[in-house]
Amino acid sequence: MEHSDSILKTAGLRKTFKVGFWGRSVTALEGLDLDVRQGEVFGFLGPNGAGKTTTIKMLMGLIYPTSGQAWLFGRPIGDQESKARLGFLPESPYFYDYLTGLEFLQFYGHLFGLRGVALGKRIDELLELVGMSHARHLQLRKFSKGMLQRVGIAQALINDPELVVLDEPMSGLDPVGRKEIRDLILRLKESGKTIFFSSHILHDAELLCDRVAIILKGRQVACGRVSELIDEGVAHSVEVVIDGLGPEELARLRQMADRVIVQGSQVLVVLPSRQQVGSVLELIRGARATLVSLTPQKGSLEDLFIREVKNKQPELREAV
């Protein structure tokens, strides 16, 4: 292995499914290479149907790879010992809805051989952590989606795992619920856990992840640190708002800027890069106009995402 602290690694992981009466072969994942290291938050991003859940299911031993290999904690996937060090929250989790919050966690605790006082203590801690202490005697069928997601995370943490795998943990939640899950992920990272999560909500990933991989239609198109990926090849545009410009200056500005929007006496100018800032400031000074604001625009994962779709996979544009 390249890195001794590698927790999750895949090499040429591939999955095809047989569909329809004639068993037509459809490729869900085409040669995936991932390397998730200890203690990081790793985002696995892509639009719906890109192959994220397929990958996670293979890593969890729910489906078998067609070819390629994958390791968790340096052991081939499916190994019972590495599963003991793992926590997993599936996409839109469905649980035994006739159980109460407490019974539900007890059941999963028993599967790990936890019992008695130790299990009771662990359940108390977890319900506290996910903010669900009030629902311990409520049946899961009465839970809201956000509550199910939180008790689902508690379930994934019952064995105090080193690696936590979350499939679309933020999907279907309201903004408050999403923030709560984000905070929870950060708390887990602080406690030294490695987190691997899939998402199609790029904003969340940008806030949370140390590194991300982006896949489209089963192919990996980018992988690396969020900051590096965003900076790479992105021209940093600048937004300037100016008050009191004359028509002559405005005409000069239009030559320099990508976009000029006039609203009353104010003008919003979008400059293609930081290099034009100096000349615009001179122009303002010369015209005795007022600089209202100057905001450098950062590239976002969304920009990167759309660029990848356009550049590398022109045939996939309709996928996003």
């Binding site: 031993g61 010992e81 599963k83 989790p93 469905y94 689902g152 379930q155």
Partner: peptide
Amino acid sequence: DRKTIYTIVSKPIP
């Protein structure tokens, strides 16, 4: 069908 099996099979249970 209900996908309840996902959380069980991912645990160290044959």
